[in-house]
Design a protein around this nucleic acid. Structure first.
Length: 566
RNA sequence: UGGGGUGUAGCCAAGCGGUAAGGCAGCGGGUUUUGAUCCCGUCAUGCGAAGGUUCGAAUCCUUCCACCCCAGCCA
C-alpha cells in the first residue's frame, strides 16, 4: 500500500493548480533553473493531516518539475521545541513516502550567518536595539487602524547599537529588557512592517545548538534568508503569512543574501469533524482525552499510521483536494473515501467475528475437520490464498442471526438458508436461549455439497455471512474507532472544542475470534475483515494484553445501515 | 475606504470572452459467495448581489455584500 501495488492514478488529466502554473511559467521564461522547495516545520509538535498537504505539495512539486525539496526544521524558538519532535517529524515524512534532498537542515545551522546579517543591517542604519518592554512596544505599535509611534531608541548610533547588540549576544542582558528591531516604518498600514523585532533574548538552551546562543532570530528574520541560503526558488507557505511577504522581501532586498527566493501562499487544509491546531492537539494529549500523539483517533500522521491509514491514501487525498487560495473546509468523507479506495484495492481479506454467536451444525460429524481455501482478495490473484478449517461448531456474528425477519434481512433466520462465506450453505433450525432470554446458540444444518456451488434443490441462500470455526481460530480484541468529534466544527463560535468530542469515539471489543491467517498479521499493515471493515494489528497494545489487538481503520460503506435505520 | 485576501452545487474544484470539467456525498438501476468492490444513469438555465460593456459574460467594468487573516520579544 505504501508502495502502491496498484498504481496511483497519474495526475496527467488533472488540471494544473496555480502553483504549478507559476512554476511552469518561471521555468519556460528561464526565470529559474531546477526549482527548489522546502518543507519547514517547527519541531514543536507532531505532524498532522494539514502538514501532509504541505508535504505532498512541496515534495510533489519538486518531483514533478525535476527539482529538489529540502526538509528544514524552523527551530528559532527553543522554548517550545525538542528533539523528540524532530525525530517524529522525520519518521512521518519518510513514512509518507518522501525523500528530502541532501541532509536535514536546521534554521539553527544558519544562526552565525543570520547574526552576521543582523550586524549588516545595524551597520547600514536599518536596525536598532530597542529598550522598550514588550508592553511598551505593543503600545507604540499602534492598532489596526491607527499608525504606531517611533520608539525613543530608534535613532541610536550605529556604534551604540553594535555595542548593545553585542551585550544582548553575550548574555549580559535580561530577557525582555531589549530587542533588535528592523527600522522600517512605524506608520505602515501593514503592521508587520512597523519595525518588527528580529532578535530577542532568550536564556534558554536550544535542542540543536545547546548553550551557544541566548539571542534568537524571529521567524521573519530567519525564514527568507534561510530560503536564500538553501537556494529555495519557491517558498510555499499558508495564507496567514501573506502579510509577511513584504517583510520577507524587505530582508531579501536589504541583505547580501545569495539568492532571491519568492514566497507563495496557499490555503491551509481544514477538515470537518476534526481539529488541526497544535494547541488543541497538544491539549487532547496532555489532558488525556486520547492516549498520546499517535492515538489512532488523532489526526496526526502518526495516529493515522497506527490506525491503519496508508501513505498512498493520504497522498491521494492531498492530490484530490487541490491547491487554491480560497479558504475551505474539506469533508472528512473525502479522506475516508481515499482510505477505503486504497484499502479495498490492496488489503488482503480475512474473516473475524466481532461479537461471536455459537452455531452448532447438527448434521456435521463432531470430529470432522475440513480445510477450505479462500482467495486473498476477490480480484487480486497475486494475493495469497488462505486456508480455513471447517468443523461442526462455528461462530457467526450476533448481528447475523434473527429468529425471524422480513425479506430485507439477508442473513441467517430460522427456517432459512445463508451462505457461509467461502464454505457451505447452512439452514437454521432453532436457537437456544439463556434464562434472560438471550440467544446463546443456534442449531443449524449444513446443506450438502454446497462449497463453490448452489444447493442441488435449487433453494438459493439470500445472503452471505462470515464465520470462524471453533476448531481453529485466534482470540483477539478489537478496537472500533469512530470520529473523535461529533461536532462538525469543534470549538465553533468560541465554544470549548472539547465539548464536541464524540463520546462514542472508541468501542473496545473483547473475545473476538479471527481466522488463523491473522496470527501472522504485522502491525499497521491492513486487512479487510470481510463485511466489517479494514483493520490492522495495533503497534502498541499487543504486548500488554497478551492477545492481539486489532484497530478498525474504517468500516466498509454500509448501505444496510440506511435500510435498517429507516 | 487600516492593510491583505477569498467568494462556482451539500463539500472540494476546473474554467481566464464563445454558451458551466472532474471528484466526494446523494439519488435510481445492474453485476456480485463481502448489504463491499465494480458498472450504468442522475444531480448548477446557474457562477456572492445588482447594474453596465458585448452579437455573446462565471470570465471585462462599476457599485455593493459576505467571509477569512493581521496589533507575540510564536511560527
Amino acid at each position: 500500500m505504501s508502495d502502491t501495488p496498484v498504481a496511483e492514478k497519474s495526475a496527467a488529466e488533472k488540471p494544473a493548480h496555480f502553483l504549478q502554473n507559476i512554476i511552469k511559467a518561471d521555468l519556460s521564461a528561464g526565470q529559474t533553473g531546477a526549482i527548489v522547495t522546502r518543507f519547514p516545520p517547527e519541531p514543536n509538535g507532531y505532524l498532522h493531516i494539514g502538514h501532509a498537504k504541505s508535504i505532498c505539495l512541496n515534495f510533489g512539486l519538486a518531483k514533478e518539475f525535476g527539482g529538489q525539496c529540502n526538509l528544514r526544521f524552523d527551530d528559532t524558538n527553543p522554548e517550545k521545541e525538542s528533539e523528540e519532535y524532530v525525530q517524529a517529524i522525520k519518521r512521518d515524512v519518510t513514512w509518507l513516502g518522501f525523500e528530502w534532498a541532501g541532509d536535514i537542515r536546521f534554521t539553527s545551522d544558519y544562526f552565525d550567518q543570520l547574526y552576521a546579517w543582523a550586524l549588516e543591517l545595524i551597520k547600514a542604519g536599518k536596525a536598532y536595539v530597542c529598550d522598550l518592554s514588550p508592553d511598551q512596544a505593543r503600545e507604540h505599535r499602534g492598532t489596526l487602524k491607527e499608525p504606531g509611534k517611533n520608539s525613543p531608541f530608534r535613532d541610536r548610533s550605529v556604534e551604540e547599537n553594535l555595542a548593545l547588540f553585542e551585550k544582548m549576544r553575550s548574555g549580559e542582558l535580561a530577557e525582555g529588557s531589549c530587542s533588535l528591531r528592523a527600522k522600517i516604518d512605524m506608520a505602515a498600514p501593514n503592521i508587520n512592517l512597523r519595525d518588527p523585532i528580529i532578535y530577542r533574548i532568550k536564556h534558554v538552551a536550544h535542542h540543536h545548538t545547546g548553550d551557544k546562543w541566548c539571542i534568537y532570530p524571529s521567524y521573519d528574520f530567519a525564514h527568507g534568508q534561510s530560503d536564500a541560503i538553501e537556494g529555495v526558488t519557491h517558498s510555499i507557505c499558508t495564507l496567514e503569512f501573506e502579510d509577511h511577504r513584504p517583510l520577507y522581501e524587505w530582508f531579501v532586498e536589504n541583505l547580501s543574501v545569495p539568492a532571491t527566493p519568492k514566497q507563495y501562499e496557499f490555503a491551509r487544509l481544514n477538515l470537518n469533524y476534526t481539529v488541526t491546531s497544535k494547541r488543541k492537539l497538544l491539549q487532547l494529549v496532555t489532558e488525556g482525552h486520547v492516549d498520546g500523539w499517535d492515538d489512532p483517533r488523532m489526526p496526526t500522521i502518526s495516529g493515522m499510521r497506527r490506525r491503519g491509514y496508508t501513505p498512498a491514501s493520504l497522498r491521494n487525498f492531498c492530490e484530490r483536494i487541490g491547491v487554491t487560495r480560497s479558504d475551505s473546509v474539506v469533508d472528512v468523507g473525502m479522506l475516508e473515501f481515499c482510505v477505503r479506495d486504497d484499502l479495498d484495492k490492496n488489503a488482503p481479506r480475512a474473516m473475524c467475528v466481532l461479537r461471536p454467536l455459537k452455531v452448532t451444525l447438527t448434521n456435521y460429524d463432531a470430529g470432522k475437520v475440513e480445510t477450505v481455501t479462500a482467495p486473498g482478495h476477490p480480484n487480486r490473484a497475486d494475493l495469497a490464498e488462505r486456508e480455513l478449517s471447517f468443523s461442526n461448531t462455528i461462530f457467526i456474528d450476533v448481528e447475523d442471526f434473527r429468529e425471524e425477519a422480513n425479506k430485507k434481512y439477508k442473513r441467517l433466520v430460522i427456517g432459512k438458508r445463508v451462505r457461509l462465506r467461502n464454505a457451505y450453505v447452512i439452514e437454521a433450525d432453532e436457537c437456544v436461549k439463556d434464562e434472560a432470554g438471550n440467544i446463546v446458540e443456534v442449531k443449524a444444518r449444513v446443506i450438502e455439497d454446497t462449497i463453490g456451488k448452489d444447493p442441488a434443490d435449487g433453494v438459493k441462500p439470500k445472503g452471505v455471512i462470515h464465520w470462524v470455526s471453533d476448531h481453529n481460530h485466534i482470540d483477539c480484541d478489537v478496537r472500533l474507532y469512530d470520529r473523535l468529534f461529533q461536532d462538525e466544527n469543534p470549538g465553533a463560535g468560541g465554544s470549548d472544542f472539547l465539548q464536541g468530542i464524540n463520546p462514542a469515539n472508541l468501542e473496545v471489543l473483547t473475545g473476538c475470534k479471527a481466522e488463523p491467517s491473522l496470527a501472522s498479521a504485522v502491525a499497521e499493515t491492513p486487512y479487510q475483515f470481510e463485511r466489517e471493515g479494514y483493520f490492522c494489528l495495533d503497534a502498541t497494545y499487543t504486548e500488554a494484553s497478551g492477545k492481539p489487538v486489532f484497530n478498525r481503520t474504517i468500516g466498509l460503506r454500509d448501505s444496510w445501515a440506511k435500510i435498517s435505520n429507516q
